[in-house]
Design a protein around this nucleic acid. Structure first.
Lengths: 137, 137
DNA sequence: TAACTCAATCGTAATCATTCTTATTTACAA
DNA sequence: TTGTAAATAAGAATGATTACGATTGAGTTA
């Protein structure tokens, strides 16, 4: 998802477009990988001196709700990244730089067969490790 | 893993066997599913009035390190369950009662092919939903 | 079995991420 | 341009987890 799509998405859901919201979108659009709330706060503080935690967390959750961001948990902290809307897939996630690589394999069809009486609401398939760049660094 | 194996595992790693450690093992052995630190504290307080958080968290992490417990993150809280040592598999996890069902499918062999220059350290494949019992409750 | 030693535990304070609260400001519709 | 609901500020509160100095106890050794 790019910035324009995200702003459109906000409007569709009846949310306003503020400078900070745009900056948050720009940030995630540029970094292209998983980042924590703290990472974002640090970035925003360069522009806005003493930004409110509330603003950051509220917007992160809002973005997650409307589908602009997706989230995962890495060593005890929530991480966010721009959502990939195109099609269903999973991710390899670099533990060092947070960057991701798409994985096309999804075993859910096969798995469903062995969960006949179970109500499946969600699933997570993530591979963790080091990307080529971070192995040499 | 059963209680005796767990105690053996503690000894092998040079850790002592205390009453509280046994009780923690008994707890996880009985509940057979994912539980939070808070769940465990509540249980232990029935026996030991005012147990130290330190004791609980230290032992949970210790157990996780030596492989007695495995851990996952469910709605923002760490959850623990007795480790299944027999063979590699994944879990369906009931969001309501925390119980798990083993899933034999593991797509990692296939996935590795598309991650040639990546160093794979770990992976997580979990299915979330409601078990048959919790759907009717 | 006594005493020794280091691990384990206690009790509580501190920390860290996150959420809440009230007052103020701002986007944008009318 | 103005009115109003939404967004933000500022910082206190919360909830899970970790840290710490003092004390207790398990398992070893004499």
């Amino acid at each position: 998802m790019n910035i324009d799509e995200a702003i459109e998405c906000l409007k569709e859901n009846g949310y306003k477009t503020t400078g900070k919201r745009k900056d948050i979108l720009t940030y995630f659009n540029e970094v292209d990988g998983y980042r924590t709330a703290k990472d974002l706060i640090q970035h925003l503080e360069e522009t806005y001196d003493g930004i409110s935690f509330d603003t950051v967390y509220r917007n992160l959750h809002l973005y997650n709700e409307v589908g602009i961001l997706e989230t995962t948990e890495l060593n005890g902290e929530k991480h966010f990244r721009m959502n990939c809307t195109h099609h269903h897939h999973h991710h390899f996630i670099c533990k060092d730089c947070g960057k991701t690589k798409e994985i096309e394999v999804c075993p859910m069809n096969e798995v469903k067969k062995s969960l006949k009486n179970y109500m499946i609401e969600d699933h997570k398939f993530e591979i963790y490790g080091l990307c080529p760049k971070c192995q040499t660094a």
